[in-house]
């Protein structure tokens, strides 16, 4: 039923507020095709992270709907209604957070096999084998039995990515995954994400790293004030933005960089 042109994700008029006065998302519409790598940029408080959290099913929404692969995923009629989330659909989405969120009481390999074993009922031996292979691929082969506290930030974040991939997600969400890292550790994490990009894994990335955005995006969305201000190929949005607000933002970000 999903033909090549059918959207993977379709977000319709998404509204979300925290309390009565803080409106974070004010009617967001985004359509994402299979194989796209969407980078969301924009000022703090513009709703980027909230958008990803909503897509992961971590936040209640006021109104709007999201479909995934043609199936209804998240919807809410109004702010008082319960947000309906299809948990089966949610399981095909993976997310990596800014602060790694590895489980501190579990070793690296236990972090990786927990969900496949408990959620999908996979045999421990087979999950362990897959996990070990993923760790090797990410240059963490020797860290399987280490605990998160013994790893560097870059290593933790690569483990977190591997953990999400263990469930074979159809879409990956990356929420400022390099923001908490020391500058010299950023590249090793971005390399891993670039590796995934080569396999055409659909992803939505929130980042402040414009170099990374330019290198990984097949499409860039500039989000500010809770709405999509500009949406297009990276050369356009990052190179010669049409909207004034986008231009201001890009100028300021690159100015700081220099």
């Amino acid at each position: 039923m999903t033909s090549a042109s059918a959207p993977l994700v379709s977000i319709r008029s998404l509204h979300k507020s925290y309390g009565p006065h803080i409106q974070v998302l004010k009617g967001l519409d985004i359509e994402m095709k299979p194989g796209e790598r969407v980078v969301v940029i924009g000022p703090s408080g513009g709703g980027k992270s909230t958008l990803l959290r909503v897509m992961m099913g971590l936040e209640k929404i006021d109104s709007g709907s999201i479909t995934f692969g043609g199936k209804p995923y998240i919807s809410s009629a109004n702010a008082d209604a319960k947000t309906a989330i299809n948990t089966d659909v949610r399981r095909s989405i993976g997310m990596v957070f800014q602060h790694y969120t590895l489980f501190p009481h579990l070793s690296v390999i236990q972090n990786l096999v927990l969900a496949p074993c408990k959620v999908r009922g996979e045999k421990k031996a087979s999950a362990t084998q897959r996990a070990q292979a993923l760790l090797e691929r990410f240059g963490l082969g020797g860290k399987a039995n280490a605990f998160p506290a013994q790893l560097s930030g870059g290593q933790k974040q690569r483990v977190a990515i591997a953990r999400a991939l263990m469930l074979d997600p159809k879409l990956m969400l990356f929420d400022e995954v390099t923001s908490a890292l020391d500058p010299e550790l950023v590249a090793e994490v971005e390399q891993v994400i670039l590796q995934l990009a080569e396999q055409n894994l659909p992803m939505m990335i929130v980042t402040h790293d414009m170099w990374f955005a330019k290198n990984i995006a097949s499409r860039v969305i500039f989000c500010a004030g809770g709405v999509v201000v500009e949406d297009g190929p990276p050369e356009q949005v990052l190179g010669s933005p049409r909207e004034e607000r986008t231009r201001d933002f890009i100028d300021r970000v690159f100015h700081i960089k220099q």
Partner: peptide, 25 residues
């Protein structure tokens, strides 16, 4: 809260989140 969020993102149901994440922590 982030630990619980990570559990949700990994597809663990509420009981599993309590048993494997919240309580051991």
């Amino acid at each position: 809260r982030e630990q619980v969020d990570a559990g949700i993102a990994l597809g663990l149901n509420p009981l599993q989140r309590v048993l494997y994440i919240v309580l051991p922590n």
